[in-house]
Computed example of a mutant assay.
Amino acid sequence: MRKKSNIFFIFIFVLITSCNRLPKDDLFKEYLYIKTHNDLENTTINENIQKDVSLVLKNHKVPYGVVIVSDVRDGRILAIEEYSRRGYDVGKYINKPLQAASIFKIVTFFASLSSNLYNSRDTIKYYDRMYSELGNYLKRRQSTKVYSKTTIKEAMAFSNNSAFAEISLKLKKDKIIESAKRLFFTGEKIRGIKTGFIELPEDSSSLIKLASGLEHSYMSPLHALLIIMTVGNDGKLVLPYINKNDSKKSLNVMKNFIANEIMKSLSLTTRIGTAKKHFSKRPEISSRTYAKTGSLYANDPDGYYNWFVGIYDGDKSRYGIVVLTVNDPKWSVKANYIAFKTIEFIKKYEEN
């Protein structure tokens, strides 16, 4: 009887101690651990960046916001924080596939490069407004001789829906689907990260909306990190980690020249494009930041989604930054501003 009792207490002891130990090789569980235990020992987290990012989110009382910072060269997570004025549970949305919005344009351009169709300097004609929701694009394209021109790099900077609709119509549908799978839109888990998915396009109308990011694509903030870390590290994803004892692994996702061409396509966003307003104050930051933004109204969490997914090319390393804010009709703060402040913190605490 005593032997059984001892075995029981040993089991309870092991269970308790395992619950109080930093998880390994599972980024989401590692994040939940540091948030619930407030324990950063043996982690890669830069406490100063983490603290200042948290303050910015709280000070702006964002309905929901998340910031993730990583070193794309070695995979270290330097900061990872959520805040919700609405009181959402920790971890509820950081690992849940949400509307990807215009971030999916990166996938479309990846498909274009893989098909030898367009590079970032090429010019393309399009047949509607930049920010058209594309409901009548196919009819307009057939019936009008009026068109505009843009380079792919400018189309990315201004998130030109019509230009990306045009790219998709010149691609094979299967190429976009294949490129989405290569960038982890598979619904599988990678080191505890839930990857997103796409709704397969049934016709040209749904295809152009997928390609431009208006509909049909879903990713979590952690999934977005995998995408930008791949692009920022020459096509090789070093799997992100928080626990210093995690196994160090990497995946070859795309060819070096394709990743570099995608980087070039992201180079104007903070200089002349959708993130110019906040980044124009510091040319030394905007000139070294490569980014894609995206915004739309979506549900669960309800509100206006504002994405920033980018790379800061520092002196010591390259850093991946993912920011998502979900705002009420009365805006709290844009992701672009949070991203800009985050890069200032990187320069202050990681680069010095």
Rank of each mutant, 00 (worst) to 15 (best):
K96P: 03
S179L: 12
H216N: 12
L171D: 05
N95M: 09
V107F: 04
Y88W: 02
F308M: 01
F110E: 08
A101I: 11
G232V: 02
P221N: 06
V56Q: 01
T36W: 05
F345Q: 07
I152G: 08
S143V: 11
S102M: 01
D203I: 14
K276L: 01
D25W: 10
L117W: 05
L32I: 05
L210F: 05
L117C: 03
K173R: 14
I7E: 14
L324I: 00
V53A: 07
N6I: 14
R86L: 12
S159Y: 03
C19A: 15
V72K: 06
D300M: 08
I198S: 04
V107E: 03
M254F: 06
S317C: 07
N245Q: 14
M219Q: 07
K58H: 08
Y31V: 09
S286G: 11
K153R: 13
N46F: 05
K29E: 07
R21I: 09
S84N: 10
L207D: 01
E41A: 15
I124H: 04
R86T: 06
C19G: 08
R140H: 14
V62K: 00
A163M: 06
Y127D: 03
R271P: 00
L266Y: 07
V253K: 00
I198T: 05
Y290K: 04
S179M: 12
K236N: 13
T274P: 00
M1S: 15
K181E: 09
S18Q: 12
V238D: 07
R288E: 11
S247R: 06
S280D: 11
G310F: 00
N136E: 15
H37G: 13
I124T: 06
A291C: 09
I68A: 14
L117S: 04
K347S: 02
V66F: 04
A298G: 14
G135H: 15
K105T: 06
Y93A: 02
T325S: 02
G87E: 11
Y93Q: 04
I16P: 14
I190N: 06
S132T: 03
L27Q: 08
W307C: 00
N46T: 07
K125G: 10
S114K: 11
V326I: 10
G303N: 01
L22M: 09
G294V: 01
V107Q: 02
E350D: 14
L210G: 02
D246N: 11
I94D: 00
A224N: 04
P63V: 11
S267T: 08
N59P: 13
E284I: 07
L32H: 04
L222V: 05
G294D: 00
L251D: 10
L169I: 10
R85Q: 13
R140N: 15
V253G: 03
K153S: 06
I346H: 00
G213Q: 08
L183S: 10
T150V: 09
I10E: 13
Q142E: 15
F197Q: 03
D89R: 15
Y312D: 00
